[in-house]
Design a protein around this nucleic acid. Structure first.
Lengths: 178, 178
DNA sequence: GCTTGTCATGTTATCTTATATCATTTAAAC
DNA sequence: GTTTAAATGATATAAGATAACATGACAAGC
């Protein structure tokens, strides 16, 4: 079931479009280190490793998948190990939880105060993060009309990414252009 | 955007504020019966009871809460009993799943083909359903820009309902009650 | 009436996701 | 170096969800 990308795929099929994935990881870690230093947060080894694991894929990872990988990296092997690291990353804005998958993904816009929205491919499981402004649309209108005070929003769209449309739905195909 | 309060909301967010709750239940059941008859779906006793249970509250119910109530009503007591009834209701558009709560709620606009959005009070747990148009806002823009084809959206807002703002957070107002 | 196919239900078992709790260790502050 | 707070390790269990199979209800066809 596992598709282990990034092992031998030169161009990552995930993330909707090609990009310099190595810099995704390096930049994400550097950004997290800088922000933790600035805010007095402690990016401990297990937390750093968890973030690195998330950054390796543009897809959401379940807590137990994370746990497996942390264990493989020599960290503890009980659920709280993964959940605590993930909680830290989410609280610090370095990762997000995808509610409809019960899974976690590295934040694509760390540092920015933002309201994330996610596009989730149901075939290849790639996830792209966009900015949402739900409070400005019909939801915001309904909230104002009813007096509801929005504190946090969850916006997730499930569908097909460019590579998985048009019959190439097996996903993961290298040659799949847009 | 327009900020006209309360006057022009096309679909009122049932759940916050007082209303004839008895008719919520009666109307919901009648609507479901009519739509099942029209579509050849079977609203069996356990399914009907599950819908009635959901309609009794403007808040989300976990599958195991549902199971408890179904058991109390004389139906089976194993998880699939609740999950099957809930699956039927969700598939038929009579109920929705609130992803960030892992819980279920009766649809407030049955019959209408719609993209629901939810406002969830973190204090009293009341949930109101509104209409969303996520594909028209920044999410839709991002989807078009990246070539992502949206099939389903999850839009949920967590915050405080009118009754729970301003110190009266015990849910004293009980806007959804009786 | 009986058979057959289909859908729904009951039940067992198991799997996945998540948290409470307490002991121990590490890092930092003094 | 001692104190203190935070982080980690480990055990146990709660909560959410599904797979698999047996039984039952009911309509269609013989």
């Amino acid at each position: 079931m596992t598709q282990t990308p990034s092992a031998d795929a030169p161009a990552d099929p995930v993330g909707f479009g090609r990009h310099d994935h190595a810099s995704c990881i390096a930049d994400g870690l550097a950004e997290a280190e800088a922000r933790c230093a600035a805010k007095g947060l402690r990016l401990t080894p297990v937390r750093r490793k968890a973030l690195e694991i998330l950054l390796q894929e543009h897809r959401a990872l379940g807590a137990y998948d994370m746990l497996d990988r942390l264990r493989a990296a020599g960290f503890g092997s009980q659920p709280p190990v993964a959940y605590r690291a993930l909680d830290f990353l989410v609280a610090g804005g370095f990762a997000h939880k995808i509610e409809c998958l019960n899974a976690f993904i590295a934040c694509a816009h760390p540092g920015a105060r933002h309201t994330p929205a996610f596009m989730i491919c149901r075939t290849c499981e790639a996830v792209a993060e966009a900015q949402a402004a739900p409070a400005r649309g019909s939801l915001g209108k309904a909230a104002r009309a009813s007096g509801f005070a929005i504190e946090r929003t969850v916006v997730e769209a499930e569908g097909l990414c460019p590579a998985c449309q048009g019959g190439a739905e097996g996903g993961a195909g290298d040659g799949a252009g847009a």
